[in-house]
């Protein structure tokens, strides 16, 4: 067989995207950790209300790239970012930009669920309080409820909002973290391998959630699981050794990649 054929699993039919407005755009993004370079100039457009998946072998720079999109790399000492990253056309690395506001617009969900050691309610209410999004307690209650509902967790936790967030199961904790991110009404949600610490059932729930969320948010996710990318992403970008090798519609990447490296990677995994 000469063409790459990947069994794309049957999944819930992905919602078609209608707009094609560029939400975030990067040009020539290079990242250095001290003396070593992790990314070698990435050009990528992220379209509004699409789910884009970043795939590639470990250490290829996909997580690093994701973290550039809301400047989480700022927290790592010795990390330097070059190139342009824009959100709605505005440079997010501009000196005048308030990184705090940026992170409210571009939220992030991490690999390992990291609920705060506070109650479930407080976990969700933390962001809105921080940014003064709710004036009164009733408004805050509303934000908490709607965030939990959108994250598909409301039914499971509505009777125990005062219990610690850490008392939930791994999958619930991750959905709590997603709800926490939603609560500050971001425009873009970044997800760094959101399911890698979860079992298949919890994973399926998160994937379904991502699909639903893409109606209102732009989502960029890193994943090691190519079936997951195939199931939930509209677009897929393949990273290799600090370069973005190719990006395109998910179906196309998985069935007919242009680059030999992409082909080797996706077939190597599914053999």
């Amino acid at each position: 067989m000469t063409t790459a054929t990947v069994a794309v699993p049957k999944a819930a039919p992905k919602r078609e995207t209608h707009s094609s407005q560029v939400k975030m755009s990067t040009r020539g993004v290079k990242v250095f950790y001290g003396d070593s370079q992790a990314l070698y100039g990435i050009d990528l457009d992220i379209i509004e209300n699409e789910v884009i998946a970043f795939i590639g072998p470990s250490g290829c720079g996909k997580s690093t790239f994701l973290r550039c999109l809301n400047r989480m790399n700022d927290t790592i000492t010795g990390c330097r970012v070059e190139g342009d990253v824009t959100l709605d056309g505005n440079d997010i690395y501009a000196p005048s930009l308030d990184v705090v506001l940026l992170r409210a617009q571009v939220g992030i969900v991490f690999q390992k669920p990291n609920p705060f050691p506070k109650s479930i309610y407080e976990n969700i209410a933390y962001g809105p309080r921080l940014h003064g999004l709710a004036k009164r307690r009733a408004e805050l209650d509303e934000v908490v409820e709607s965030s939990l509902q959108r994250a598909g967790l409301w039914g499971e936790v509505k009777d125990r909002l005062d219990q610690p967030g850490t008392s939930l199961s791994g999958g619930q904790q991750q959905r709590l973290c997603i709800a926490r991110t939603i609560a500050v009404s971001p425009e873009v949600i970044l997800m760094d391998e959101p399911c890698s610490a979860l079992d298949p059932i919890a994973t399926a729930k998160i994937e379904q959630l991502i699909d639903e969320l893409s109606a209102s948010y732009t989502i960029a996710m890193v994943t090691h699981n190519m079936q997951q990318a195939a199931r939930v992403a509209h677009k897929t970008a393949f990273f290799h050794m600090g370069d973005m090798v190719e990006v395109g519609d998910t179906d196309k990447i998985f069935t007919n990649p242009r680059d030999q490296r992409t082909h080797d990677y996706i077939t190597g995994r599914f053999g």
């Binding site: 989480m72 927290t75 409210a104 992030i108 991490f110 390992k112 990291n114």
Partner: peptide, 27 residues
């Protein structure tokens, strides 16, 4: 205190001192 907790708060748009006061110290 795990870095993940700090990242969580910073990722929601908390400043450094907010993160320390509201998340790191309580933890």
């Amino acid at each position: 205190v795990p870095k993940a907790l700090r990242d969580g708060a910073l990722g929601l748009g908390a400043t450094k001192s907010e993160t320390i006061r509201q998340v790191v110290l309580p933890a």
